[in-house]
Amino acid sequence: MEFQHFTTTSDDEGRRLDRVIKRMLPSSSLSALYRLIRKGLIRVDAARCNPDTVVHVGNDITIAVIDETLSDLRRTASDFQDPTMPQTGDDRSPCPFPVLFENSDLLFINKPSGVPVHGDGGLDRLIGQAESASRSLSFRSGPLHRLDKETSGVIAFSRSLHGAQWFSEGMQTHAFNKLYLGIVEGRLEEPERWEDRDEYGRPMITRILPISDGSGSLRNISLILYRIETGRKHQIRIQSSLRGYPLLGDARYGSKKGGPYYLHAGCLKFPEDRLEGLPPEITAPLPERFISLLRKDFPENVLALVQSKAVYCSENEELQ
């Protein structure tokens, strides 16, 4: 019987065999994969194994070339690059959007408004795989969190399994400070802590700090700095609307003005025990339409405050 051989890389390290194989043979059900493993048609270093066998760097995974594996094996073999072959380039994929920071573990871009994260025309399809991911049997690089289609700003992509695991854990434990700038209808005067429940009963917690009232033709508007403590779908949009301060342009949640709303994921702050080489914070410049409104309808110093990044400084204790 013919077997196809594959060598695991650092981005497969510590994963269960069944999860690695599922990536390689996506057309097969888990029950079919378990059957192949049980029959010895999938092996690790030529030895019989179990679905929960943990793989390590340099393991030789062999898969029998039979009818139910043939088509997937052809695809995997064409995608997989031998990790022992010399590498070229700096392990960075071309990106069609402004790159805020990139290393071998993580990529941060400034997402434009109007571009979805997933699906047709989404970032997950427009931003290529990391070179290391193309050498891995099971790891695929991609977006690590979500922003709504019309929300601009900082968004993170994995470049290695280590980076993906670290970032995902930080998001789950709320170890990062996620700061947004929004322009809302109405005027807020004092810092507030908003706590609500989403449609599933889960808490939505957001701290807000008013930065400035409008002073131009749109006087009844405010620039707000948000820090979200939870990350529910449409959280800022919903909570702003519930309190009578919908985001300007967010007709779905009560804005009187049509068009794209004004919400920008401006800054992502990391704890001291962050990944090596990662700066303390990643900030994203405002899109031009946001800048234009600040220049036209807010006091002169407001745009300078935002562009200097002082608006995100730790002295804003109300958000800490």
Rank of each mutant, 00 (worst) to 15 (best):
S158C: 02
L188W: 07
D91H: 13
Y34A: 08
A175Q: 07
R15S: 11
Y34S: 12
E318Y: 04
G153Q: 11
G122P: 09
D60R: 12
G186P: 03
T173A: 11
D12G: 06
R219K: 14
D45K: 14
Y226P: 03
L247K: 00
L106E: 09
R140H: 07
E2P: 01
F97K: 05
N301W: 15
L107A: 10
S217T: 13
S168V: 03
G258R: 06
L106S: 09
I224Y: 04
L33M: 07
S152T: 00
V311H: 07
R159K: 13
T173V: 14
L41V: 06
L36A: 13
K296M: 07
M204K: 04
Q129N: 07
D91Y: 10
G182Q: 05
P191Q: 10
N177R: 15
K233C: 03
D198Q: 10
G266H: 00
G259F: 05
R135P: 12
R48A: 05
S212W: 04
V184P: 03
E199W: 02
N220L: 02
S31P: 07
E229V: 11
S132R: 15
L247P: 01
I205S: 10
Y253Q: 03
T173L: 14
S113R: 11
R202A: 09
T173K: 15
M24N: 03
T9W: 05
I42Y: 11
P260G: 06
S132C: 12
S31E: 15
L106W: 11
C313H: 14
S71R: 13
K257T: 06
S241A: 15
V302W: 04
P271V: 00
N59R: 07
A77F: 10
V65Y: 05
E300N: 15
H56K: 13
L107G: 05
E192D: 13
Q129P: 01
A265Q: 01
G244V: 01
L293F: 04
P203D: 01
T173Q: 14
T53W: 01
G214E: 05
D67W: 09
Y261W: 08
I224F: 11
T230G: 11
D52S: 13
C267A: 10
R146P: 00
R75P: 00
I208P: 03
N110D: 15
L303Y: 07
T7L: 15
L294Q: 02
V311S: 02
R227E: 15
F167D: 11
P271R: 01
